[in-house]
Design a protein around this nucleic acid. Sequence first.
DNA 1: TCTTGAACCTCAAGTTACTTGAGGGTCTAT
DNA 2: ATAGACCCTCAAGTAACTTGAGGTTCAAGA
Lengths: 137, 137
Amino acid sequence: MPHLRIGALAARTGTNAPTIRYYEGIGLLRPADRQAGGQRAYGEQDVKRLTFIRRCREFGFSIEQVRSLVALVQDRERSCMDARNVAHEHLLAVRAKLNELKVLERSIAGFIATCDASCAGGPGPDCTILEDLARPS
Amino acid sequence: MPHLRIGALAARTGTNAPTIRYYEGIGLLRPADRQAGGQRAYGEQDVKRLTFIRRCREFGFSIEQVRSLVALVQDRERSCMDARNVAHEHLLAVRAKLNELKVLERSIAGFIATCDASCAGGPGPDCTILEDLARPS
DNA sequence: TCTTGAACCTCAAGTTACTTGAGGGTCTAT
DNA sequence: ATAGACCCTCAAGTAACTTGAGGTTCAAGA
């Protein structure tokens, strides 16, 4: 059983050490076993758990959502359907964000196009674009 | 000259009062004039400025970016081309984020589809989806 | 004129999800 | 045995606000 120290666990999971300690602190990871000298010692189970957590975080789940997802995994009685529902709710949020960003992208691209068209010659005190941005909608 | 109090300014700009005070505190808005009783008094110029700031924030510019954009507007010498460049840099960031989100959306949708396919019958202790999420990539 | 209630004031602390820093032990290899 | 990498704890910093406590001012109705 090769046990890992915190840095190795971090490397294996795409995390870093302070974040792992932070997760332990907020109870997302169980208090780690300690070696003789007091350093944290981890096993494969911890790699799994932390990988799960990181993946969920990458998916944009909040810490609290991850917490319930972790609880779901823990509890053999409750099914993955509960997780599915959490995920579905999140999917809707992601799609909404996606739409917002698309609108945003167009707006900025439009702004730049206008700049390029009307300020092409260089600095001009008659450029009204920044003024436009300040106009109430 | 109908002067506005903070709540009216907030309403006109889609902000709220504490946020306006916060912006004043960090120097994004100039210290507001005060009425007899010490309450803040605003004019049309402030509506413009705050509208500009809010719009930039909605565009996802950071406070610091907005700060430089505001400085650009202030400075008649520098042109809108400078603003264009700030915007262009931001556009690239938005596009990157957009791509990330698209990938994310597919991942979650895939997760849900898998759930629907393999857990359709209801809770099952043999569901491996949550296990899968914990597998190292 | 008085009084209520909404809107305002300041200052401090809370939020999210971490990161960074200070000051000091432990482990491993030479 | 000693250097250097890695680890420890605890506190504070980050972004961009929001929330709360405790108190003042304003506008309108009785």
